[in-house]
């Protein structure tokens, strides 16, 4: 009897829909593949540089343009004989960090703007959403390049610039979600209970929009990685000698016919990271959508 009661209590602590969400996510093959790949890439980028015999800045003139799997250069070397593997992993650190930091920042901006716009509606909401629309009017890449041309190009600035140009989607998702949630009875109930605007926004509404925010955030990482690569490839982003997946490509283009691995390997890294994040995002979207259980 006591055991049974305890059983019921532990069950009730386990949030039932979250565990169902988890189950749906685990069953999503692509998402799990993506997650495994991202974890793998992450571990390689963090640990890899220590395990390799070469430092990414070591110049070996004699071993220039070694193809992959020459001696200890598992991914070959570049035009100065630097180990490509070491560079790739260090670049991965930079690219992933920029991607994740830009995601956090843009999600924060987007969530706050969407929340305020959706909750207050009327004039405040209209002004904020028109601002969002006006940001969306500019092609993101031009906005990015313009800003990058004026600002000092380092990892911090690039993160900032990407975040400032990619918060709009989150803002729109959040404001749409809030506008529908705010009409629900539990919000009226909170108002009648005397709750403040801040309480209603952050404690009643926000927790109920976490699902779509997480999905959008995951997809934003993929977009941010791609944008960083784009800007760095064009030379406005992360500056050498600090490597990033984008500026490695920039370097590689002049040796495309003689040393194609210089372009192919960072290209694969970018593709793998971006598709993985997209798969995870898709998986989360399906898992958080309770309707997918109905099948």
């Amino acid at each position: 009897m006591a055991a049974a009661t305890e059983q019921i209590q532990t069950n009730s602590k386990l949030r039932f829909f979250e565990s169902r969400t988890l189950r749906r996510f685990v069953r999503h093959r692509l998402a799990i593949t993506g997650l495994v790949m991202i974890v793998g890439i992450g571990i390689l980028c963090v640990v890899g540089p220590w395990l390799l015999p070469h430092d990414m800045l070591d110049i070996n003139i004699r071993d220039r343009f070694s193809p992959p799997l020459t001696d200890t250069f598992i991914m070959g070397t570049d035009e100065m004989g630097r180990d490509l593997a070491a560079r790739l992993f260090m670049a991965g650190r930079v690219s992933l960090m920029v991607g994740i930091a830009a995601m956090i920042l843009s999600t924060l901006i987007g969530t706050v703007i969407g929340l305020v716009a959706g909750y207050f509606g009327k004039v405040t909401g209209t002004v904020l959403m028109r601002l969002t629309d006006s940001f969306l009017c500019f092609p993101q890449i031009f906005l990015l390049l313009t800003l990058a041309a004026f600002l000092e190009p380092n990892a911090f600035m690039i993160t900032l610039i990407i975040a400032v140009t990619s918060w709009m989607e989150v803002a729109r998702i959040v404001s749409a979600e809030i506008r529908s949630l705010r009409e629900r009875d539990f919000i009226t109930a909170a108002r009648i209970s005397g709750a403040s605007h801040r309480w209603i926004m952050f404690r009643e509404l926000l927790p109920n929009t976490i699902g779509p925010i997480i999905v959008a955030a995951t997809l934003t990482i993929a977009k941010a990685i791609l944008l960083e690569a784009y800007v760095s490839f064009l030379g406005y982003g992360i500056q050498p000698p600090m490597p990033s997946w984008g500026n490695m490509l920039n370097n590689a283009q002049q040796f495309l016919d003689t040393a194609p691995w210089l372009a192919i390997i960072p290209g694969i890294a970018i593709t793998a990271a971006v598709t993985s994040f997209n798969f995870i995002g898709d998986g989360l979207r399906d898992a958080l959508d309770a309707r997918s259980d109905a099948q």
């Binding site: 629900r184 009875d185 109930a189 009648i192 209970s193 403040s196 309480w199 109920n208």
Partner: peptide
């Protein structure tokens, strides 16, 4: 003055435990 709602499914915040839901009026009053 307090109110009880028609729809028992939309009148409780799905992300809040009963203790939290019942605690909201106390927090402010």
């Amino acid at each position: 003055m307090q109110m009880v709602f028609q729809d028992p499914f939309s009148s409780l915040n799905p992300r809040m435990s009963v203790a939290e839901t019942l605690g909201v009026p106390l927090r402010f009053h």
